[in-house]
Design a protein around this nucleic acid. Structure first.
Lengths: 133, 133
DNA sequence: GCTTAATATGCCTTGACACGTATATGCTAT
DNA sequence: ATAGCATATACGTGTCAAGGCATATTAAGC
C-alpha cells in the first residue's frame, strides 16, 4: 500500500467481498476494528487495510474512542452508486412499458444469454453485402 | 479467459470502467459489437471479451442479425444491485431521522474521513484497563 | 469455390491488489 | 517509565484479470 493516493472508483471499492461484509456490518451500528475483526473472523491487518480504503473513498468515517476507533457509514458513495443505477432503473422498476418498448423495438428472434457457439442458420434474412466500413 | 466458468459477482463485473461504458451505451438502445467498438474507440477483441463477461453474468443478451450480434440489456443483475443498495438506503433517502438516530447514538466527538495520523488528546475519558480478550 | 466483413477466442504479458507476517504507533493504566 | 491492548503500516508474495495481438469461426456476396 504505497503513498500514492489511488483514487479508486466506488465500484472498485465494493467489488471486494470483505469490504462489502464490513459495510453490511456497519449498517446495524458503528463498530470498532476489533469487533469487526471478531465478527468476520478476519485478521486485524486485513480489517484495518479495508477500512482505510473505505475511509479514503468516503464510505466510512472513524472516531477515536480511547485506544479504539469506531467506524460508521457515510452516505456519499452510496448516493453515487444509486445515481448510477438510476439510469438503468427504467428497465425494471415501475411499469413494464419502457421495457416492452425496448423489447419489441426489434422483431423477436432467437435470444440466448449463454455462449453462442452454435448459431442457427437464418436463411430468410437477405441482406446487402456489408460495406459499412 | 479459460474454460472455467468463473462466477463473478455483479459487483466485480461493474468494477471495470469499460464494461460500465458498454452498459451505458446500451441504455439508449441495442447495439452491435462494431457500433460499440466505434463509439468507445476500443479494440474489437476487448469489446467482445467484455460482452462475454457481461453476457455470462446476465447483464446483456445477444441476438443474431446476419453476421452481426446485437446486444441489449437484461434487468436481472441491476435488480440485484438495487437490492443490495437498498439496505443502505436508510442512511440518506427520505427523512433524516434514521441518519440522525445513528449520528447522536454517540456523543459528538472529532470525526474525520482522512488519515487519522494526528490524534487529539482526549483527557476527559477515563476508562478501565482493557481486558476484553 | 473464394473473398470480405463481423465477431469470437486463444495466448502471452503486465500490473494491480489482496493476503500473511512482522513491526510500528498510539493510548491507557499501573 | 513500563507493560499491555488496539490499531495502523510496511514489506514480500501470489494470483487473477485486463490489454494486445494473432487467429479462428461464421455469414454473406461474388
Amino acid at each position: 500500500m504505497g503513498y500514492i493516493q489511488r483514487v479508486e472508483s466506488v465500484f472498485e471499492i465494493i467489488a471486494e467481498p470483505n469490504r462489502r461484509a464490513i459495510l453490511s456490518l456497519l449498517v446495524s451500528s458503528q463498530q470498532s476494528v476489533g469487533e469487526i475483526e471478531r465478527q468476520l473472523r478476519m485478521p486485524q491487518p486485513a480489517v484495518s487495510k479495508h477500512l482505510r480504503v473505505l475511509r479514503e473513498a468516503g464510505f466510512v468515517e472513524s472516531m477515536v474512542d480511547a485506544q479504539r476507533r469506531l467506524y460508521r457509514l457515510k452516505p456519499g458513495p452510496f448516493q453515487e452508486l444509486d445515481a448510477w443505477l438510476a439510469r438503468f432503473r427504467r428497465f425494471w422498476s415501475g411499469h413494464i412499458d419502457a421495457l416492452d418498448r425496448h423489447l419489441d423495438h426489434m422483431d423477436r428472434q432467437q435470444y440466448g444469454s449463454s455462449t453462442p457457439t452454435k448459431r442457427k442458420t437464418n436463411p430468410k434474412t437477405t441482406r446487402p453485402k456489408p460495406r459499412t466500413r
